[in-house]
Design a binder for these strands. Sequence first.
DNA 1: CATGAATGAGTGTTCATTCAT
DNA 2: CATGAATGAACACTCATTCAT
Lengths: 212, 212, 212, 212
Amino acid sequence: MAKQGTLRQRLRDVTAEAMLEAAERAMVKKGYDKATMAQIAAEAGCATGTFYLYFKNKEELFEAIIARHGKVLFETARAGMETTDDPLEKVRRGAEGHLRYIHQHKPFFRLFLTAMPMRQRTLHAKLSPRVRQQHEDYSQLELEALRAAQKKGQVRRDLPVELLQQFMDAVGINIVEEFLFSNCKRSLDEQMEIIWGLITGGIGARSSHERS
Amino acid sequence: MAKQGTLRQRLRDVTAEAMLEAAERAMVKKGYDKATMAQIAAEAGCATGTFYLYFKNKEELFEAIIARHGKVLFETARAGMETTDDPLEKVRRGAEGHLRYIHQHKPFFRLFLTAMPMRQRTLHAKLSPRVRQQHEDYSQLELEALRAAQKKGQVRRDLPVELLQQFMDAVGINIVEEFLFSNCKRSLDEQMEIIWGLITGGIGARSSHERS
Amino acid sequence: MAKQGTLRQRLRDVTAEAMLEAAERAMVKKGYDKATMAQIAAEAGCATGTFYLYFKNKEELFEAIIARHGKVLFETARAGMETTDDPLEKVRRGAEGHLRYIHQHKPFFRLFLTAMPMRQRTLHAKLSPRVRQQHEDYSQLELEALRAAQKKGQVRRDLPVELLQQFMDAVGINIVEEFLFSNCKRSLDEQMEIIWGLITGGIGARSSHERS
Amino acid sequence: MAKQGTLRQRLRDVTAEAMLEAAERAMVKKGYDKATMAQIAAEAGCATGTFYLYFKNKEELFEAIIARHGKVLFETARAGMETTDDPLEKVRRGAEGHLRYIHQHKPFFRLFLTAMPMRQRTLHAKLSPRVRQQHEDYSQLELEALRAAQKKGQVRRDLPVELLQQFMDAVGINIVEEFLFSNCKRSLDEQMEIIWGLITGGIGARSSHERS
DNA sequence: CATGAATGAGTGTTCATTCAT
DNA sequence: CATGAATGAACACTCATTCAT
């Protein structure tokens, strides 16, 4: 019974995964609102009703798609952070992880930025609890690194870390948005360098500069 | 005839103005998509059909709302720029003008950022030609100021002014977005100081720093 | 008072006439349903409301247009009949009068056949009483002529005149319809000859044939 | 799979058939334009949306109704033609087939003649390709029969067969229209005899008469 | 589990008609 | 008489969701 349950569960997950992929494809093609459940089902090669066995409604379906990316995104970023001990470099590698993942999934992020169904684009938006948690966790790690960097004098001390983080997010997200929607020809590494240059300027060890 | 035309025109404008206000109120309340023409009309205290005497359709109605704000927004910003001759200060005052206006019209900008109907959130989005032009014009002024600032060594020279501007927009928009959607208690001036601090860091006269 | 009334009446008629012409132009251009009262008013160079001072509603406006043509059409046909004493020739000249008038007002008749608003195309349709009467009157004259022709052995006697008339109408109307809607290059006289040839065949003095 | 497909298809056809019948009933009652989709759905005992699973829109729904009748109408007429070898008799039986079918479906033909949605009443009107083809095919057969009849001296030779056919259509359609809209008490056979009598007169072997 | 036919509430838009000025 | 701004009922069509099979 237990084994069967597990097997069932595994099958269920595989199916759900396939459906998410199909739904993402359809939504990327048409946009969230204009992708009808019928089209999504056609893309998945199953009946409309079937989706409702796996997801409560269209919105939750989209949230699941987001969650699926969110999980990998934050895992990647966290993994990046752990490849070094230097606080500021931690932050940079985390950011780079983000950027790299987004780069590899441009169409989805275009969809995400463009068509969030709840129309709440802020980072604090009401995402699915799972993603929210993932974001929260990553956020904590980043804050810790920023605090350490402050201690080491790598970043300015006159502003709270929360604000520095907010600034980083702002720069990151919006510049990435530019890169996503414009036909940016710059390579990933060039982009990263530019973004990081700007961020460093903003959060950099100002006090020391000012002193000098 | 001319006078009558003027009178008619004036009445028309007053009515259109009132309708725009009502529509804005309704959309702010419900969001662009969910605010039905019926609700909007109710808010304006007139019949549905009446709106179609003044605006071709729902989308143009929204564009008119945007244009109405856009006009004042950019005029304010431009006026701010012209109160000084120092290039970098020009840029700062322009940005401050933006921020101040947005602050005074939070609900609308929440709507705007949240519910753009064409789902094109980039700054270069296809707005109504009028707004687009206004934005373009302001953009040119800002670029000129940035170039002058570069010449005077007030901002870094290693990046093209277009990129610096993009960075400023990114910071401005997204931080403002934060302020709009979170319950930010900071005063306008505090906000401006923070934003400008970060921006200055990013675009600041880096070359000299690096030399040192 | 009486004179003034007459003057007023004359002015009224002139105005109404102009409105009818304008309305016909607009409807011919767009079709009955698609010609909006606004467009019609624009064509007439007056306000929408003005039409409702002269005609109860759109349908009566159209009926008035029909009546205006009907009057002349039947007068022409009747006049034609009275230019001869031979019964069958009377009938022919009446028919020719019809055809000639229709020919000179193709656009209107296309409109009429195409877009009758009450969607009642039969000749016995509920036209405005005036036109109905005019049609009735002409019909009587034609029947009398046919009866006389029967007596003289010019047309078959085995069918009632009403049926012969019906047959004539049928041929006339539908062949004319063909001529109106197809790009018929035949001259009016050629057309008339063909139609009359067919009609003569149908109603012609059969009894003599049968004897032979 | 094939069997299932056939079963599904069969069910679909049955449903579509029922919907067509209901729609025809509703439209016959109210007229094409005034029969709303809601009323039609009520007549069919289903929801509005359901119709859109079977027909793209109201116009195609009507076209399907027409096509359904057209198919049987022309098949009946053709079958009638093939029951004899005499050319003129072929033509007569074809016409009789038409008349008989129309007689059995008076309400529909009243609707058809009254409310053609595209407002193109000519016989060459833009019907659905299927019906158009069916009409075309039958038309060809009739023309061949007329040509054969001309050769045998059964019908006049001084006019092209196309014109004779046009004449027949004209008489047929319009007389039938009369019969449909007036309260004609004549039996089908009587009607046919009359129509055929008139047609024979028009297209009859004139040349021989003229010679005599 | 899967299906897909059926649902029906919901919406933007048009336009003949009215009526205060 | 003339105006034309305002009206608001009416309608075709869509699509997320359900449920009998």
